[in-house]
Design a protein around this nucleic acid. Structure first.
Lengths: 250, 250
DNA sequence: TGGGTTTCTCAGAGAAATCACAGCTCGGGG
DNA sequence: CCCCGAGCTGTGATTTCTCTGAGAAACCCA
Protein backbone atom coordinates (compact mmCIF):
# COMPACT_ATOMS: atom_id res chain seq x y z
CA UNK A 1 0.00 0.00 0.00
CA UNK A 2 1.50 3.28 -1.12
CA UNK A 3 1.69 5.84 1.61
CA UNK A 4 -0.68 8.75 1.50
CA UNK A 5 -2.94 7.64 -1.27
CA UNK A 6 -6.64 7.27 -1.17
CA UNK A 7 -7.91 3.77 -1.29
CA UNK A 8 -11.23 2.24 -1.95
CA UNK A 9 -13.41 1.16 0.90
CA UNK A 10 -15.54 -1.93 0.69
CA UNK A 11 -18.33 0.29 -0.54
CA UNK A 12 -16.24 1.66 -3.32
CA UNK A 13 -15.99 5.05 -1.69
CA UNK A 14 -12.67 6.74 -1.39
CA UNK A 15 -11.48 7.18 2.11
CA UNK A 16 -9.12 9.57 3.77
CA UNK A 17 -5.72 8.37 4.85
CA UNK A 18 -2.88 10.05 6.67
CA UNK A 19 0.35 10.81 4.85
CA UNK A 20 1.91 7.62 6.17
CA UNK A 21 -0.99 5.55 4.94
CA UNK A 22 -2.41 4.81 8.35
CA UNK A 23 -6.06 5.47 8.99
CA UNK A 24 -7.24 8.85 10.19
CA UNK A 25 -7.78 9.01 13.95
CA UNK A 26 -10.79 10.64 15.52
CA UNK A 27 -11.56 11.21 19.17
CA UNK A 28 -15.23 11.29 20.12
CA UNK A 29 -16.16 13.03 23.37
CA UNK A 30 -19.70 12.85 24.71
CA UNK A 31 -21.14 11.84 28.04
CA UNK A 32 -24.08 9.95 26.55
CA UNK A 33 -22.97 6.43 25.81
CA UNK A 34 -25.58 5.98 23.12
CA UNK A 35 -24.16 8.95 21.25
CA UNK A 36 -20.55 7.84 21.42
CA UNK A 37 -21.67 4.38 20.35
CA UNK A 38 -23.60 5.73 17.43
CA UNK A 39 -20.80 7.98 16.29
CA UNK A 40 -18.10 5.40 16.82
CA UNK A 41 -19.99 2.93 14.70
CA UNK A 42 -20.61 5.36 11.90
CA UNK A 43 -17.08 6.73 11.87
CA UNK A 44 -15.44 3.34 12.02
CA UNK A 45 -17.48 2.48 9.02
CA UNK A 46 -15.70 5.32 7.25
CA UNK A 47 -12.51 3.43 7.85
CA UNK A 48 -11.31 5.71 10.60
CA UNK A 49 -9.79 4.75 13.89
CA UNK A 50 -11.91 5.87 16.81
CA UNK A 51 -11.31 6.47 20.49
CA UNK A 52 -14.03 7.80 22.76
CA UNK A 53 -14.20 9.59 26.08
CA UNK A 54 -17.12 10.42 28.35
CA UNK A 55 -15.86 13.57 30.06
CA UNK A 56 -13.40 16.40 29.81
CA UNK A 57 -10.58 14.83 31.74
CA UNK A 58 -10.88 11.62 29.82
CA UNK A 59 -10.83 13.60 26.62
CA UNK A 60 -7.65 15.46 27.47
CA UNK A 61 -5.92 12.29 28.50
CA UNK A 62 -7.10 10.36 25.47
CA UNK A 63 -6.01 13.18 23.18
CA UNK A 64 -2.57 13.15 24.71
CA UNK A 65 -1.91 9.51 24.02
CA UNK A 66 -4.16 8.87 21.03
CA UNK A 67 -3.11 12.02 19.15
CA UNK A 68 -6.22 12.22 16.98
CA UNK A 69 -6.42 14.03 13.65
CA UNK A 70 -9.80 15.44 14.62
CA UNK A 71 -12.04 15.65 17.66
CA UNK A 72 -15.81 15.48 18.00
CA UNK A 73 -16.60 17.36 21.17
CA UNK A 74 -19.88 17.70 22.99
CA UNK A 75 -20.07 21.16 24.53
CA UNK A 76 -22.01 19.87 27.50
CA UNK A 77 -19.82 17.63 29.59
CA UNK A 78 -20.39 16.73 33.22
CA UNK A 79 -17.03 17.76 34.62
CA UNK A 80 -15.75 20.72 32.64
CA UNK A 81 -17.29 23.21 30.28
CA UNK A 82 -16.56 22.92 26.61
CA UNK A 83 -14.24 25.89 26.42
CA UNK A 84 -11.93 24.55 29.09
CA UNK A 85 -11.74 21.20 27.37
CA UNK A 86 -11.01 22.91 24.12
CA UNK A 87 -8.25 24.97 25.73
CA UNK A 88 -6.56 21.96 27.17
CA UNK A 89 -6.88 19.98 23.99
CA UNK A 90 -5.25 22.77 22.10
CA UNK A 91 -2.38 22.91 24.53
CA UNK A 92 -1.36 19.40 23.44
CA UNK A 93 -2.62 19.46 19.90
CA UNK A 94 -2.62 23.06 18.70
CA UNK A 95 -3.82 22.37 15.20
CA UNK A 96 -6.36 19.62 15.67
CA UNK A 97 -9.71 20.53 14.11
CA UNK A 98 -12.74 20.18 16.34
CA UNK A 99 -16.33 19.43 15.47
CA UNK A 100 -18.56 20.74 18.25
CA UNK A 101 -21.82 19.11 19.22
CA UNK A 102 -24.25 21.55 20.75
CA UNK A 103 -27.85 21.58 21.81
CA UNK A 104 -30.07 23.31 19.34
CA UNK A 105 -30.82 26.17 21.70
CA UNK A 106 -27.20 26.79 22.67
CA UNK A 107 -25.83 30.30 22.51
CA UNK A 108 -25.08 30.79 18.86
CA UNK A 109 -22.55 33.62 19.01
CA UNK A 110 -20.35 31.68 21.38
CA UNK A 111 -20.13 28.92 18.83
CA UNK A 112 -19.65 31.38 16.04
CA UNK A 113 -16.47 32.58 17.70
CA UNK A 114 -15.23 29.06 18.16
CA UNK A 115 -15.69 27.95 14.64
CA UNK A 116 -13.89 31.00 13.32
CA UNK A 117 -10.64 29.08 13.49
CA UNK A 118 -11.72 26.56 10.91
CA UNK A 119 -13.57 24.35 13.32
CA UNK A 120 -17.18 23.47 12.73
CA UNK A 121 -20.25 22.43 14.66
CA UNK A 122 -23.49 20.52 14.35
CA UNK A 123 -26.53 20.73 16.58
CA UNK A 124 -28.11 17.83 18.34
CA UNK A 125 -29.94 15.86 17.22
CA UNK A 126 -27.80 15.42 14.13
CA UNK A 127 -27.82 13.07 11.21
CA UNK A 128 -24.83 10.82 10.68
CA UNK A 129 -24.35 11.94 7.12
CA UNK A 130 -24.01 15.46 8.40
CA UNK A 131 -21.41 14.60 11.01
CA UNK A 132 -19.42 12.46 8.64
CA UNK A 133 -19.48 15.13 5.97
CA UNK A 134 -18.37 17.92 8.28
CA UNK A 135 -15.67 15.78 9.75
CA UNK A 136 -14.39 14.84 6.35
CA UNK A 137 -14.30 18.50 5.47
CA UNK A 138 -12.38 19.42 8.59
CA UNK A 139 -9.85 16.66 8.17
CA UNK A 140 -9.39 17.38 4.52
CA UNK A 141 -8.84 21.07 5.13
CA UNK A 142 -6.56 20.55 8.10
CA UNK A 143 -4.09 18.77 5.93
CA UNK A 144 -4.00 15.75 8.21
CA UNK A 145 -5.13 13.68 5.29
CA UNK A 146 -2.58 13.57 2.59
CA UNK A 147 -4.33 13.78 -0.68
CA UNK A 148 -6.43 16.88 -1.10
CA UNK A 149 -9.06 14.43 -2.10
CA UNK A 150 -11.54 16.60 -3.84
CA UNK A 151 -14.94 17.24 -2.50
CA UNK A 152 -16.91 16.54 -5.63
CA UNK A 153 -18.92 13.40 -6.05
CA UNK A 154 -19.61 12.38 -9.61
CA UNK A 155 -22.05 9.79 -10.92
CA UNK A 156 -22.62 9.91 -14.63
CA UNK A 157 -23.38 13.50 -15.62
CA UNK A 158 -24.49 14.29 -12.11
CA UNK A 159 -22.11 16.13 -9.79
CA UNK A 160 -22.37 17.14 -6.17
CA UNK A 161 -19.87 19.39 -4.45
CA UNK A 162 -19.72 18.68 -0.76
CA UNK A 163 -18.05 22.00 -0.03
CA UNK A 164 -20.15 24.43 -2.01
CA UNK A 165 -23.26 22.25 -1.96
CA UNK A 166 -23.61 22.77 -5.67
CA UNK A 167 -25.36 20.12 -7.65
CA UNK A 168 -25.44 19.87 -11.43
CA UNK A 169 -26.83 17.47 -13.94
CA UNK A 170 -25.52 17.70 -17.46
CA UNK A 171 -24.05 21.08 -16.56
CA UNK A 172 -27.30 22.58 -15.34
CA UNK A 173 -27.34 23.81 -11.75
CA UNK A 174 -30.00 22.26 -9.54
CA UNK A 175 -31.26 23.73 -6.32
CA UNK A 176 -31.80 21.23 -3.54
CA UNK A 177 -33.06 21.71 -0.01
CA UNK A 178 -30.89 20.57 2.88
CA UNK A 179 -32.58 17.21 3.25
CA UNK A 180 -32.64 16.55 -0.46
CA UNK A 181 -28.93 17.34 -0.58
CA UNK A 182 -28.11 14.93 2.24
CA UNK A 183 -30.13 12.19 0.65
CA UNK A 184 -28.51 12.66 -2.72
CA UNK A 185 -25.08 12.74 -1.14
CA UNK A 186 -25.72 9.44 0.59
CA UNK A 187 -26.93 7.87 -2.62
CA UNK A 188 -23.97 9.22 -4.58
CA UNK A 189 -21.52 8.02 -2.00
CA UNK A 190 -22.88 4.53 -2.62
CA UNK A 191 -23.45 4.40 -6.35
CA UNK A 192 -24.88 1.22 -7.86
CA UNK A 193 -25.62 -0.10 -4.42
CA UNK A 194 -29.11 -0.81 -3.20
CA UNK A 195 -29.80 1.16 -0.03
CA UNK A 196 -32.77 0.16 2.06
CA UNK A 197 -35.18 2.71 3.39
CA UNK A 198 -34.02 1.82 6.88
CA UNK A 199 -30.41 2.50 5.99
CA UNK A 200 -31.33 5.80 4.43
CA UNK A 201 -33.43 6.80 7.39
CA UNK A 202 -30.59 5.95 9.73
CA UNK A 203 -27.99 7.93 7.89
CA UNK A 204 -29.81 10.90 6.51
CA UNK A 205 -32.37 11.69 9.19
CA UNK A 206 -31.55 12.65 12.77
CA UNK A 207 -31.05 9.84 15.18
CA UNK A 208 -34.16 10.81 17.09
CA UNK A 209 -36.44 10.99 14.10
CA UNK A 210 -39.57 9.11 15.00
CA UNK A 211 -41.74 9.82 12.03
CA UNK A 212 -43.24 7.91 9.19
CA UNK A 213 -40.91 5.76 7.17
CA UNK A 214 -42.39 7.08 3.98
CA UNK A 215 -40.51 10.36 4.23
CA UNK A 216 -37.84 8.49 2.34
CA UNK A 217 -40.24 7.76 -0.49
CA UNK A 218 -41.34 11.35 -0.41
CA UNK A 219 -37.84 12.74 -0.70
CA UNK A 220 -36.91 10.26 -3.37
CA UNK A 221 -39.89 11.59 -5.22
CA UNK A 222 -38.68 15.18 -4.75
CA UNK A 223 -35.20 14.28 -5.91
CA UNK A 224 -36.51 12.58 -9.00
CA UNK A 225 -38.41 15.67 -9.95
CA UNK A 226 -35.26 17.71 -9.75
CA UNK A 227 -32.61 15.27 -10.89
CA UNK A 228 -34.36 12.97 -13.30
CA UNK A 229 -37.03 15.36 -14.60
CA UNK A 230 -37.44 14.66 -18.28
CA UNK A 231 -34.12 12.87 -18.50
CA UNK A 232 -32.88 9.34 -18.45
CA UNK A 233 -33.54 8.34 -14.82
CA UNK A 234 -30.61 7.75 -12.50
CA UNK A 235 -32.53 6.98 -9.34
CA UNK A 236 -34.01 3.51 -9.42
CA UNK A 237 -36.40 1.65 -7.15
CA UNK A 238 -35.73 -1.95 -6.24
CA UNK A 239 -39.12 -2.89 -4.98
CA UNK A 240 -38.93 -4.59 -1.63
CA UNK A 241 -35.23 -3.79 -1.31
CA UNK A 242 -34.59 -0.07 -1.57
CA UNK A 243 -33.20 2.52 -3.95
CA UNK A 244 -29.99 2.97 -5.87
CA UNK A 245 -28.38 5.58 -8.06
CA UNK A 246 -26.32 4.85 -11.14
CA UNK A 247 -25.23 6.56 -14.33
CA UNK A 248 -28.00 6.86 -16.87
CA UNK A 249 -26.00 5.21 -19.60
CA UNK A 250 -25.91 1.61 -18.48
CA UNK B 1 -1.85 -19.68 -0.60
CA UNK B 2 -2.45 -15.98 -0.52
CA UNK B 3 -3.77 -14.83 2.77
CA UNK B 4 -7.37 -13.75 2.83
CA UNK B 5 -8.46 -15.36 -0.37
CA UNK B 6 -11.60 -17.25 -1.04
CA UNK B 7 -11.46 -20.94 -1.52
CA UNK B 8 -13.83 -23.53 -2.77
CA UNK B 9 -15.68 -25.75 -0.40
CA UNK B 10 -16.27 -29.42 -1.07
CA UNK B 11 -19.72 -28.45 -2.27
CA UNK B 12 -18.34 -26.09 -4.83
CA UNK B 13 -19.41 -22.97 -3.04
CA UNK B 14 -16.90 -20.25 -2.38
CA UNK B 15 -16.66 -19.47 1.24
CA UNK B 16 -15.26 -16.66 3.25
CA UNK B 17 -12.08 -17.31 5.14
CA UNK B 18 -10.14 -15.24 7.57
CA UNK B 19 -6.76 -13.94 6.51
CA UNK B 20 -5.04 -16.84 8.25
CA UNK B 21 -7.19 -19.34 6.42
CA UNK B 22 -9.22 -20.39 9.43
CA UNK B 23 -12.99 -20.40 9.21
CA UNK B 24 -15.01 -17.31 9.97
CA UNK B 25 -16.49 -17.30 13.46
CA UNK B 26 -20.02 -16.18 14.18
CA UNK B 27 -21.74 -15.73 17.52
CA UNK B 28 -25.52 -16.22 17.55
CA UNK B 29 -27.48 -14.64 20.39
CA UNK B 30 -31.19 -15.36 20.85
CA UNK B 31 -33.25 -16.55 23.75
CA UNK B 32 -35.43 -18.85 21.67
CA UNK B 33 -33.63 -22.13 21.37
CA UNK B 34 -35.43 -23.00 18.16
CA UNK B 35 -34.02 -19.88 16.55
CA UNK B 36 -30.44 -20.39 17.67
CA UNK B 37 -30.69 -23.99 16.52
CA UNK B 38 -32.05 -23.00 13.16
CA UNK B 39 -29.42 -20.35 12.65
CA UNK B 40 -26.55 -22.42 13.94
CA UNK B 41 -27.36 -25.19 11.53
CA UNK B 42 -27.70 -22.90 8.58
CA UNK B 43 -24.52 -21.00 9.36
CA UNK B 44 -22.46 -24.09 10.06
CA UNK B 45 -23.53 -25.24 6.66
CA UNK B 46 -21.80 -22.16 5.31
CA UNK B 47 -18.60 -23.54 6.70
CA UNK B 48 -18.51 -21.07 9.54
CA UNK B 49 -17.71 -21.79 13.12
CA UNK B 50 -20.68 -21.04 15.37
CA UNK B 51 -21.11 -20.36 19.05
CA UNK B 52 -24.47 -19.43 20.53
CA UNK B 53 -25.73 -17.68 23.64
CA UNK B 54 -29.21 -17.29 25.09
CA UNK B 55 -28.88 -14.00 26.92
CA UNK B 56 -26.88 -10.81 27.13
CA UNK B 57 -24.41 -11.89 29.74
CA UNK B 58 -23.72 -15.13 27.97
CA UNK B 59 -23.21 -13.17 24.80
CA UNK B 60 -20.66 -10.84 26.31
CA UNK B 61 -18.77 -13.70 27.86
CA UNK B 62 -18.87 -15.79 24.72
CA UNK B 63 -17.69 -12.85 22.66
CA UNK B 64 -14.77 -12.35 24.96
CA UNK B 65 -13.43 -15.84 24.61
CA UNK B 66 -14.73 -16.85 21.21
CA UNK B 67 -13.76 -13.59 19.49
CA UNK B 68 -16.24 -13.88 16.63
CA UNK B 69 -15.90 -12.12 13.30
CA UNK B 70 -19.59 -11.28 13.35
CA UNK B 71 -22.52 -11.44 15.74
CA UNK B 72 -26.19 -12.19 15.17
CA UNK B 73 -28.03 -10.44 17.99
CA UNK B 74 -31.69 -10.62 18.93
CA UNK B 75 -32.79 -7.25 20.22
CA UNK B 76 -35.17 -8.83 22.69
CA UNK B 77 -33.21 -10.65 25.34
CA UNK B 78 -34.46 -11.60 28.76
CA UNK B 79 -31.71 -10.03 30.84
CA UNK B 80 -30.45 -6.91 29.07
CA UNK B 81 -31.70 -4.69 26.31
CA UNK B 82 -30.08 -4.90 22.94
CA UNK B 83 -28.22 -1.62 23.08
CA UNK B 84 -26.50 -2.52 26.34
CA UNK B 85 -25.41 -5.82 24.93
CA UNK B 86 -24.13 -4.03 21.88
CA UNK B 87 -22.20 -1.57 24.02
CA UNK B 88 -20.50 -4.29 25.96
CA UNK B 89 -19.72 -6.33 22.90
CA UNK B 90 -18.13 -3.31 21.33
CA UNK B 91 -15.99 -2.71 24.34
CA UNK B 92 -14.23 -6.01 23.73
CA UNK B 93 -14.57 -6.17 19.98
CA UNK B 94 -14.78 -2.63 18.66
CA UNK B 95 -15.07 -3.51 15.02
CA UNK B 96 -17.21 -6.61 15.01
CA UNK B 97 -20.17 -6.23 12.68
CA UNK B 98 -23.56 -7.07 14.11
CA UNK B 99 -26.69 -8.39 12.45
CA UNK B 100 -29.72 -7.47 14.53
CA UNK B 101 -32.84 -9.55 14.71
CA UNK B 102 -35.97 -7.56 15.50
CA UNK B 103 -39.67 -8.19 15.53
CA UNK B 104 -41.42 -6.86 12.48
CA UNK B 105 -43.62 -4.50 14.45
CA UNK B 106 -40.68 -3.16 16.40
CA UNK B 107 -39.28 -1.58 13.29
CA UNK B 108 -40.86 1.75 13.93
CA UNK B 109 -39.77 1.89 17.51
CA UNK B 110 -36.29 2.95 16.76
CA UNK B 111 -33.92 0.77 14.94
CA UNK B 112 -32.36 4.18 14.60
CA UNK B 113 -28.66 4.10 14.28
CA UNK B 114 -28.45 0.38 14.34
CA UNK B 115 -27.54 0.05 10.73
CA UNK B 116 -25.58 3.25 10.94
CA UNK B 117 -22.20 1.74 11.53
CA UNK B 118 -22.45 -0.60 8.66
CA UNK B 119 -24.32 -3.04 10.77
CA UNK B 120 -27.50 -4.48 9.42
CA UNK B 121 -30.72 -6.02 10.60
CA UNK B 122 -33.44 -8.41 9.55
CA UNK B 123 -36.95 -8.66 10.90
CA UNK B 124 -38.50 -11.78 12.29
CA UNK B 125 -39.69 -13.95 10.78
CA UNK B 126 -36.73 -14.02 8.43
CA UNK B 127 -35.61 -16.37 5.72
CA UNK B 128 -32.29 -18.10 6.15
CA UNK B 129 -31.08 -16.92 2.79
CA UNK B 130 -31.62 -13.39 3.95
CA UNK B 131 -29.67 -13.88 7.15
CA UNK B 132 -26.83 -15.65 5.42
CA UNK B 133 -26.65 -13.06 2.68
CA UNK B 134 -26.59 -10.14 5.06
CA UNK B 135 -24.05 -11.81 7.25
CA UNK B 136 -21.82 -12.51 4.31
CA UNK B 137 -22.11 -8.89 3.33
CA UNK B 138 -21.20 -7.70 6.78
CA UNK B 139 -18.23 -10.00 7.08
CA UNK B 140 -17.00 -9.14 3.64
CA UNK B 141 -17.24 -5.44 4.28
CA UNK B 142 -15.76 -5.60 7.75
CA UNK B 143 -12.49 -6.74 6.34
CA UNK B 144 -12.40 -9.84 8.51
CA UNK B 145 -12.38 -11.76 5.30
CA UNK B 146 -10.79 -10.88 2.06
CA UNK B 147 -11.91 -7.45 0.94
CA UNK B 148 -11.57 -8.18 -2.69
CA UNK B 149 -13.92 -11.08 -2.67
CA UNK B 150 -16.53 -9.27 -4.64
CA UNK B 151 -20.22 -9.53 -4.32
CA UNK B 152 -20.91 -11.07 -7.69
CA UNK B 153 -22.00 -14.65 -8.14
CA UNK B 154 -21.22 -16.16 -11.52
CA UNK B 155 -22.50 -19.37 -13.06
CA UNK B 156 -21.78 -19.74 -16.75
CA UNK B 157 -22.87 -16.56 -18.47
CA UNK B 158 -25.24 -15.74 -15.66
CA UNK B 159 -24.21 -13.17 -13.05
CA UNK B 160 -25.89 -11.90 -9.92
CA UNK B 161 -24.61 -8.89 -8.00
CA UNK B 162 -25.59 -8.99 -4.38
CA UNK B 163 -24.88 -5.28 -3.88
CA UNK B 164 -26.70 -3.76 -6.80
CA UNK B 165 -29.16 -6.65 -7.14
CA UNK B 166 -28.35 -6.72 -10.82
CA UNK B 167 -28.72 -9.94 -12.75
CA UNK B 168 -27.45 -10.54 -16.24
CA UNK B 169 -27.41 -13.41 -18.63
CA UNK B 170 -25.03 -13.19 -21.57
CA UNK B 171 -24.66 -9.52 -20.81
CA UNK B 172 -28.37 -8.72 -20.92
CA UNK B 173 -29.86 -7.22 -17.80
CA UNK B 174 -32.75 -9.15 -16.29
CA UNK B 175 -35.27 -7.75 -13.87
CA UNK B 176 -36.20 -10.01 -10.99
CA UNK B 177 -38.64 -9.51 -8.15
CA UNK B 178 -37.42 -9.79 -4.57
CA UNK B 179 -38.43 -13.43 -4.18
CA UNK B 180 -37.11 -14.43 -7.57
CA UNK B 181 -33.83 -12.78 -6.68
CA UNK B 182 -33.53 -14.68 -3.42
CA UNK B 183 -34.33 -17.95 -5.10
CA UNK B 184 -31.80 -17.42 -7.86
CA UNK B 185 -29.20 -16.40 -5.34
CA UNK B 186 -29.73 -19.62 -3.45
CA UNK B 187 -29.45 -21.68 -6.61
CA UNK B 188 -26.35 -19.85 -7.78
CA UNK B 189 -24.66 -20.27 -4.47
CA UNK B 190 -25.09 -23.99 -4.91
CA UNK B 191 -24.33 -24.57 -8.55
CA UNK B 192 -24.54 -28.12 -9.92
CA UNK B 193 -26.14 -29.24 -6.70
CA UNK B 194 -29.64 -30.61 -6.48
CA UNK B 195 -31.74 -28.63 -4.03
CA UNK B 196 -34.98 -30.14 -2.87
CA UNK B 197 -38.16 -28.14 -2.78
CA UNK B 198 -38.12 -28.51 0.98
CA UNK B 199 -34.63 -27.09 1.19
CA UNK B 200 -35.57 -24.22 -1.04
CA UNK B 201 -38.70 -23.52 0.92
CA UNK B 202 -36.71 -23.55 4.15
CA UNK B 203 -34.02 -21.24 2.91
CA UNK B 204 -35.77 -18.78 0.69
CA UNK B 205 -39.11 -18.38 2.38
CA UNK B 206 -39.59 -17.19 5.96
CA UNK B 207 -39.46 -19.87 8.57
CA UNK B 208 -43.12 -19.35 9.37
CA UNK B 209 -44.35 -19.62 5.80
CA UNK B 210 -47.50 -21.69 5.81
CA UNK B 211 -48.56 -21.65 2.20
CA UNK B 212 -48.80 -24.18 -0.56
CA UNK B 213 -45.66 -26.11 -1.31
CA UNK B 214 -45.93 -25.44 -5.00
CA UNK B 215 -44.78 -21.84 -4.67
CA UNK B 216 -41.36 -23.21 -5.36
CA UNK B 217 -42.46 -24.71 -8.65
CA UNK B 218 -44.18 -21.46 -9.43
CA UNK B 219 -41.12 -19.36 -8.82
CA UNK B 220 -38.87 -21.78 -10.67
CA UNK B 221 -41.24 -21.31 -13.54
CA UNK B 222 -40.97 -17.53 -13.26
CA UNK B 223 -37.19 -17.74 -13.16
CA UNK B 224 -37.02 -19.95 -16.21
CA UNK B 225 -39.07 -17.50 -18.17
CA UNK B 226 -36.66 -14.77 -17.31
CA UNK B 227 -33.26 -16.39 -17.42
CA UNK B 228 -33.68 -19.42 -19.64
CA UNK B 229 -36.13 -17.87 -22.07
CA UNK B 230 -35.14 -18.96 -25.55
CA UNK B 231 -31.67 -19.95 -24.45
CA UNK B 232 -29.86 -23.06 -23.45
CA UNK B 233 -31.51 -23.85 -20.11
CA UNK B 234 -29.49 -23.54 -16.94
CA UNK B 235 -32.16 -24.51 -14.46
CA UNK B 236 -32.84 -28.22 -14.49
CA UNK B 237 -35.44 -30.40 -12.81
CA UNK B 238 -34.43 -33.63 -11.19
CA UNK B 239 -37.76 -35.30 -10.94
CA UNK B 240 -38.47 -36.47 -7.42
CA UNK B 241 -35.33 -34.79 -6.09
CA UNK B 242 -35.36 -31.08 -6.77
CA UNK B 243 -33.73 -28.48 -8.95
CA UNK B 244 -30.23 -27.47 -9.85
CA UNK B 245 -28.52 -24.74 -11.77
CA UNK B 246 -25.41 -25.19 -13.90
CA UNK B 247 -23.66 -23.54 -16.80
CA UNK B 248 -25.42 -24.10 -20.10
CA UNK B 249 -22.35 -25.50 -21.81
CA UNK B 250 -21.92 -28.84 -20.10
C1' DT C 1 -44.28 39.78 12.73
C1' DG C 2 -45.14 37.91 8.06
C1' DG C 3 -44.40 35.56 3.86
C1' DG C 4 -41.85 32.26 1.53
C1' DT C 5 -39.68 27.85 2.15
C1' DT C 6 -39.03 23.40 3.97
C1' DT C 7 -40.31 19.37 6.35
C1' DC C 8 -43.47 16.05 7.28
C1' DT C 9 -48.18 13.56 7.85
C1' DC C 10 -51.91 11.56 5.78
C1' DA C 11 -54.42 9.21 2.54
C1' DG C 12 -55.75 7.51 -1.91
C1' DA C 13 -54.50 5.74 -6.46
C1' DG C 14 -52.07 2.67 -8.95
C1' DA C 15 -48.68 -0.76 -9.82
C1' DA C 16 -46.40 -4.82 -8.75
C1' DA C 17 -45.69 -8.95 -6.37
C1' DT C 18 -47.24 -12.94 -4.13
C1' DC C 19 -49.83 -16.79 -3.84
C1' DA C 20 -53.91 -20.16 -4.25
C1' DC C 21 -56.14 -22.87 -7.32
C1' DA C 22 -56.89 -25.81 -11.03
C1' DG C 23 -56.23 -27.91 -15.21
C1' DC C 24 -52.73 -29.55 -18.15
C1' DT C 25 -48.27 -31.85 -19.44
C1' DC C 26 -44.83 -35.00 -19.13
C1' DG C 27 -41.88 -38.86 -17.65
C1' DG C 28 -41.33 -43.30 -16.18
C1' DG C 29 -42.84 -47.62 -14.18
C1' DG C 30 -45.58 -51.51 -14.98
C1' DC D 1 -48.99 -48.36 -24.26
C1' DC D 2 -51.39 -46.74 -20.36
C1' DC D 3 -51.65 -44.68 -15.98
C1' DC D 4 -50.29 -42.00 -12.13
C1' DG D 5 -48.10 -38.77 -9.78
C1' DA D 6 -44.82 -35.05 -10.11
C1' DG D 7 -44.21 -30.91 -12.16
C1' DC D 8 -45.65 -26.80 -14.99
C1' DT D 9 -48.19 -22.72 -15.86
C1' DG D 10 -52.48 -19.60 -16.83
C1' DT D 11 -55.81 -16.99 -14.30
C1' DG D 12 -57.08 -13.98 -11.09
C1' DA D 13 -57.75 -12.58 -6.06
C1' DT D 14 -55.41 -10.46 -2.58
C1' DT D 15 -51.85 -8.24 -0.37
C1' DT D 16 -48.10 -5.26 -0.25
C1' DC D 17 -45.36 -1.60 -1.82
C1' DT D 18 -44.60 2.80 -3.91
C1' DC D 19 -45.70 7.23 -5.56
C1' DT D 20 -47.60 11.65 -5.10
C1' DG D 21 -51.03 15.47 -4.14
C1' DA D 22 -52.78 18.30 -0.53
C1' DG D 23 -52.24 20.62 3.37
C1' DA D 24 -50.55 21.45 8.28
C1' DA D 25 -46.82 22.75 11.02
C1' DA D 26 -42.24 24.35 11.71
C1' DC D 27 -38.70 27.15 10.24
C1' DC D 28 -36.08 30.97 8.50
C1' DC D 29 -34.92 35.44 7.20
C1' DA D 30 -35.84 40.00 6.78
Amino acid sequence: MVSGMTTTSPQGRTELLRPDGSPVRVLVVDDELSITELLSMALRYEGWQIRSAGDGHGAVQAAREFRPDAVVLDMMLPDMDGLSVLGRLRRDLPDVPVLFLTAKDAVEDRIAGLTAGGDDYVTKPFSLEEVVARLRGLIRRSGAADRRSDSVLVVGDLTLDEDSHEVTRGGDGIHLTATEFELLRFLMRNPRRVLSKAQILDRVWSYDFGGQANVVELYISYLRRKIDAGREPMIHTRRGAGYLIKPATS
